[in-house]
Design a protein around this nucleic acid. Structure first.
Lengths: 184, 184
DNA sequence: ACTGGTTCTAGTACTAACTGATAAAACTAG
DNA sequence: CTAGTTTTATCAGTTAGTACTAGAACCAGT
């Protein structure tokens, strides 16, 4: 009986801390109706750091996350790149990228990956997107690994014609034609 | 002399804390070569809370910020919306959206605004982007206020044909044709 | 050179939210 | 009923402070 109780309580503890991480041991003890010492023991067993540690960790990683998100010079990870010719980028569809309701990725994330890649491929100090023709072939779901391949098919003056094809593990899901314009 | 020293020191204190907010009073005292008490007095005068308070505040607001950014169901603010017909959305180009080098907006942000709007306009519980034809007419700079107008031009079955035109204060900067597909 | 006011430092008492250790109490299972 | 587990209690010690008092240093003006 006690053994189940304990497991159960520790589960509750984890949930409580997850949902409101600013609870002290004392408050947790009151909520779960055990002594403070029990909470401490449980935290020790579960490897949950103390309130202050928790707060600090949250502050730190949320900070880097905000930076990462808002910086976002490039969407997706560049895997291969031949300047002026071709490039490959990879991106995993995270929970933040999908519609809650349907679990389908919002179109602009896939576009962003392709557009970033197209930009990376062309061999110019600065460039903007001029025209894009894009087609979403199948809905993209959470957790999928998207691999985008870009190829420069033509170059005329300061205009670059680039094809990007994005596949998940199984098939082609997206395809785009970009005309990028380099600036001086 | 002392008066200037003090102001100067407090300025330094503010900068130190801003650049690395996880410093204790003791560490700050060492860095500025004064006693801990002086640091405390300064913090009191400047209304800077203690390390733990600071950490907690950071954790809290970074958390909400991350949520706000990653939630981002819609890019841009909806100003007007007639379901199934038309819509208007507004977005200001922030420093995060531009290339550091050129101060020109990354294409995918403008696309995201248009795409979000197109999605909002159609009167369906869930939908994905099928095809898009887009054209960037002029480079978009930091601080510009982008107003996107969407219009449903045709509807056939579960396919919606939508035009989006985006203007800054002076002219049309972007134009897109979307075919959105509603899901059941 | 002395006095007065600001600024800085030192010291004490107290707090929250812990860790770590040790020991007793309570439960519970064979 | 006893051995083992689980829980609670108690005490000492830590960190990063607050709040307050008192003294030292310094400089400025008369």
């Amino acid at each position: 009986m006690a053994r189940i109780q304990k497991k159960h309580r520790q589960q509750q503890l984890i949930e409580k801390i997850q949902s409101s991480p600013f609870l002290t041991d004392e408050e947790l003890a009151r909520l779960l109706d055990v002594s403070v010492q029990t909470i401490r023991l449980d935290r020790l067993e579960l490897g949950i750091p103390e309130l202050r540690e928790r707060t600090k960790l949250m502050a730190e990683d949320a900070q880097t996350k905000v930076k990462a998100i808002s910086k976002g010079e490039v969407v997706g990870d560049l895997i291969d790149l031949v300047l002026g010719k071709s490039g490959i980028s990879m991106m995993v569809v995270t929970p933040e990228m999908v519609f809650e309701k349907t679990q389908v990725a919002r179109g602009h994330h896939v576009f962003s990956q392709a557009n970033s890649l197209a930009l990376a491929v062309i061999d110019a100090p600065a460039a903007v997107t001029g025209v894009a023709n894009i087609k979403y072939k199948v809905p993209i779901k959470i957790g999928e690994k998207l691999v985008a391949k870009a190829e420069v098919v033509k170059q005329r003056g300061n205009k670059y014609f680039i094809w990007v094809k994005t596949r998940n593990e199984a098939q082609e899901v997206f395809r785009a034609k970009f005309i990028m314009v380099s600036l001086d």
